[in-house]
């Protein structure tokens, strides 16, 4: 009896596993999106509550950990404060210069972006650099393809899928992410591609263009969906493609994606 039952279970398992393989490899893209949207809608309040709770836990544990370092941190802050005071004067001058350069290049002033602030309420469980989930969706006017930045005008990715109260944002390091970019210092143009959630690569840069280690890479605005002038990162390493037609550069993103809490979706 037990053997028979076990063989019945074995048949059941084989059928379920086969159905799963078929679903994984042959399900049409987006086929389950309406159901997924419904599920995300139901779990949204719970997800947000747990996320906010975890943030409080993180802040509390961070505070406890920092107590022992308070004296050292205080000394560090005083010296940093002195350095920052002198830097403010320098930055005021740079801001004026930046405003005038943005005007010359016809870039939208950053303060004129129509931004939608949103909390990050989930991320790729396997790799922190693949995608994040934000707590704004259709009702907030979020649409697929909209760029997502952090407060300093640093591009982190683009909206990929939008649901009732949530949206999935593919980060720059996602393998499906492709953004037109430019080297601010040398004006070399190329595309920034994601590398399996592990990093980003500036690709398709002509051999005649110049790339230098440490150069700043920003969006070029080509293609129209991402405005020009959003920072992407700095060049870490330069290499030549195997066919020697193009140059490539490994980009060090400006933000640590694992630490993202609040992001802004550019709606215009």
């Amino acid at each position: 009896m037990s053997g028979k039952l076990f063989s019945q279970n074995r048949i059941k398992v084989v059928i379920i596993l086969a159905a799963c393989v078929l679903l994984v490899f042959f399900n049409p893209k987006g086929f389950f999106n309406p159901i997924r949207g419904g599920v995300l809608e139901i779990i949204y309040p719970f997800q947000k509550t747990f996320y906010l709770l975890s943030q409080k836990v993180r802040i509390a544990t961070g505070f406890l950990n920092s107590i022992s370092d308070l004296k050292k941190e205080n000394e560090k802050l005083i010296s940093e404060n002195n350095a920052l005071s002198s830097e403010i004067i320098f930055l005021k001058d740079t801001k004026n210069e930046n405003d005038s350069l943005r005007e010359q290049l016809n870039l939208i002033p950053r303060e004129k972006f129509k931004l939608e602030a949103s909390f990050v309420i989930g991320s790729d469980p396997q790799r922190s650099g693949s995608w994040i989930m934000i707590d704004k969706g259709n009702p907030a006017g979020i649409e697929a393809g909209m760029p997502v930045i952090v407060s300093e005008g640093i591009l982190v990715g683009k909206v990929a899928e939008v649901y009732g109260n949530t949206a999935k944002v593919d980060l720059l390091t996602n393998s499906s992410s492709v953004i037109n970019a430019v080297d601010i210092e040398t004006e070399a143009k190329g595309v920034v591609r994601g590398e399996y959630g592990l990093g980003a690569l500036l690709d398709m840069v002509a051999q005649t263009d110049v790339l230098n280690g440490g150069d700043t890479i920003a969006t070029s605005g080509l293609g129209g969906d991402v405005p020009a002038g959003l920072l992407i990162g700095k060049i870490q390493e330069i290499r030549v493609t195997q066919d020697r037609l193009f140059q490539q550069a490994i980009i060090m993103p400006r933000v640590k994606y694992a630490d993202l809490d609040v992001v802004f979706v550019i709606k215009n």
């Binding site: 393989v21 399900n27 779990i43």
Partner: peptide, 25 residues
């Protein structure tokens, strides 16, 4: 549930869970 929330292809976690649950039992 996890396939939906993780944006993974539907069936990924189900496959793994059913196989593991079968092995465990």
């Amino acid at each position: 549930m996890l396939d939906f929330i993780y944006f993974w292809p539907i069936g990924t976690n189900i496959f793994s869970f059913v196989a593991i649950v079968f092995g465990a039992s």
